[in-house]
Design a protein around this nucleic acid. Structure first.
Length: 293
DNA sequence: ACCTCGACCTGGGCGC
DNA sequence: TGCGCCCAGGTCGAGG
């Protein structure tokens, strides 16, 4: 559940459960899931620690368990869910456009690699089919904490998202604008879906070079980025709560992606067939008439 | 500093 | 039913 809106939905879904709960036991099942430090050290260090704040920057979850910070990156298929044995487990639902699996609660299965127990039967589960995700437990005084956080740049849903620095970063670059949007230093949290969406909304082709885009067009793009992220967040939240209400299927179709994954289909604005090209090594969908070079 | 490629993994969908 | 191929939200390191 990789891009900013999905990660933020995960963070919010855990808010009612994690803060104040202490880890009594921990299990790490699969050695290939990247956990630092080593699983035995991770387990002994996290035992007895209490969840405090749940933060996020870009796609990185930043959980505070004094005196440690737990940094979680979900990779492509990571899922963090709270499991209450007093509640019923739910089946996985596939996102109509992205294919991402979602559920409110699931039992431990072959893809569940980490379990944190809270002593009351409840647990935090980490499931990751492709195992690209990473869990890092870092002491608050370890300088590596700051270096890890520094790898994540400006999050477009914070007050740090300011036009002048964005303009400067983009216009000095000859890279395709899509590559710039995917740069986590510049737009932390934007991934393939929301890069395509923001470019469509602002009428810019993904392969356009940053240095060739005018100030007004970049202003539009600058505004489109948080706009599409917030729209995704609202849709994610909607389908998630609909799902909680056990009226799943209709709710999960709420998410309307304008271009991502829609190549070969008609553009919602002009009915032209959406094109597919590879930019920055990622599949991109875009509209030849609505998006100008 | 940038690009491209391959690697890391598993599973779903498609054509034959 | 099965096999082979291509595809997928992300990042990282090597080599040009």
């Amino acid at each position: 559940m990789p891009e900013l809106p999905e990660v933020e939905s995960v963070r919010r879904s855990l808010l009612p459960y994690l803060p104040g709960r202490s880890v009594t036991e921990a299990e790490v099942h699969h050695p290939k899931v990247l956990v630092t430090p080593t699983p035995p050290e991770f387990i002994s260090q996290i035992k007895g620690k209490r969840f405090e704040t749940l933060g996020r920057r870009g796609k990185l979850l930043i959980f505070e368990l004094p005196p440690y910070y737990l940094l979680i990156h979900l990779g492509m298929t990571g899922q963090v869910t709270f499991r209450d044995p007093g509640r019923e487990d739910r089946p996985f639902e596939r996102h109509p456009h992205t294919g991402l699996q979602r559920t409110l609660q699931h039992p431990v299965d072959q893809h569940t690699h980490i379990v944190l127990h809270f002593g009351d039967g409840c647990a935090l589960l980490y499931r990751d089919i492709r195992k690209f995700g990473k869990w890092r437990l870092i002491h608050q005084d370890n300088p590596r904490l700051q270096s890890e956080l520094a790898k994540v740049g400006t999050d477009p849903l914070t007050p740090d998202w300011k036009f002048e620095p964005f303009l400067k970063a983009v216009s000095k670059s000859d890279r395709p604008i899509k590559a710039i949007l995917l740069d986590q230093q510049i737009c932390a949290g934007v991934g393939n879906i929301y890069a395509d969406e923001a470019l469509f909304v602002s009428g810019i082709r993904p392969e356009s070079r940053g240095s060739q885009l005018s100030r007004p067009r970049l202003k539009k793009l600058f505004q489109a980025v948080p706009e599409v992220l917030l729209k995704g967040l609202a849709a994610g939240g909607t389908s998630f709560s609909d799902y909680v209400d056990a009226d799943g299927k209709k709710g999960s179709n709420q998410e309307q992606l304008l271009v991502y994954g829609r190549y070969g289909q008609a553009c919602f604005r002009c009915q032209q067939t959406l094109l597919r090209t590879t930019v920055a090594q990622r599949t991109s969908s875009w509209c030849k008439t609505c998006q100008k070079p």
